[in-house]
């Protein structure tokens, strides 16, 4: 029997050591396996306070066969700037610097340092893994929590504002590369990281990462929900370079609203939307349509 070609390189297996401290069904280590496939051990992750600070496990061990610098909450992009410049100075060019931060560490407390690093165009990849709330501290609302979602700080009526669109903010910085991605689409993430790896300067990837604990769903559904976000048109996969949006293959069918699954399909799996009203669902639909119109205008 001939060996079938694996859909992703075998070195996807290399970096993540079994026995990490993530909750069952956590999307974070799932994405690290894709990073492993692209960079292997040759990456330095700069991680601010977030779930990942815990997921890699306690001293003296570390679940990743890679380098990690844990940093203070607001500073991932700033520390990564310093690391990238020091490596350049020392003539080291075979190691990828990656700022790996959650949505709170990016969209909220880390926004200024992110904006500064992007404007200065340091040569590293910033990955915002977006589980849409402060999960590590116990599911508090963040700037990236979606409209209508329950969190422990929006406990009864749910969040009354929409999600901050960080990818678009980064596009406005005129950086060489911005992309959205999802843990449900590892091949797509792989291709995007491969492209980012070849580009010099600042790269930003907004990675959608459904959290079983915080979104209140069964851990077995992490991938299913990540895919539903795309299939309902709620999460749009694209790349931005050369001044244009390039819609990714997985999201291409959903430019046509008729081909999208109903939003309710996505919401019904998640306890955080249990008390959502029909009016609020209509508002989410309006918001999704608005996002698509923006995408279409910039393609």
């Amino acid at each position: 029997m001939s060996r079938p070609k694996p859909p992703l390189p075998y070195n996807m297996r290399e970096v993540l050591q079994p026995g990490d401290a993530a909750c069952p069904g956590c999307p974070i280590p799932m994405a690290w396996k894709v990073l492993s496939a692209v960079f292997g051990e040759k990456m330095i992750l700069v991680i601010p306070a977030c779930c990942s600070s815990v997921v890699v496990g306690p001293y003296p061990g570390n679940a990743l066969k890679a380098s990690i610098i844990h940093v203070a909450f607001a500073s991932a992009a700033a520390v990564a700037s310093g690391v990238a410049e020091a490596l350049k100075r020392r003539g080291i060019n075979d190691v990828q610097v990656i700022a790996w931060a959650g949505d709170g560490g990016t969209a909220d407390i880390g926004m200024a340092s992110l904006s500064g690093a992007a404007e200065r165009n340091h040569d590293f990849i910033y990955i915002m893994y977006d589980n849409e709330a402060y999960m590590n501290t116990g599911i508090q609302r963040s700037g990236a929590t979606p409209y209508g979602a329950w969190t422990t700080t929006t406990p009864i009526i749910g969040k009354t504002e929409h999600k901050k669109d960080v990818a678009r903010i980064m596009i406005a910085h005129n950086v060489p590369y911005v992309a959205t991605a999802s843990v449900g689409y590892p091949h797509d993430l792989y291709a995007k990281l491969q492209r980012a790896k070849k580009i010099r300067g600042f790269k930003f990837i907004h990675l959608h990462a459904p959290c079983p604990v915080g979104w209140r769903f069964d851990p077995r559904y992490t991938v299913r929900i990540a895919k539903l976000a795309v299939e309902t048109g709620l999460w749009i996969l694209y790349e931005y370079y050369d001044g244009k949006i390039h819609l990714s293959g997985a999201s291409r069918p959903y430019i046509d609203p008729a081909r999208r699954k109903p939003i309710e399909e996505y919401l019904k799996y998640q306890g955080r939307f249990r008390n959502i009203t029909p009016e609020k669902i209509e508002e989410i639909k309006r918001y999704v349509e608005m996002n698509w119109n923006w995408i279409k205008k910039h393609m």
Partner: peptide
């Protein structure tokens, strides 16, 4: 120093969970 190194089972035998 607060330096950690790669390890299998950093959170123990997680199969027990």
């Amino acid at each position: 120093l607060p330096i950690a190194k790669p390890m299998v089972g950093v959170a123990g035998k997680t199969g027990l969970w």
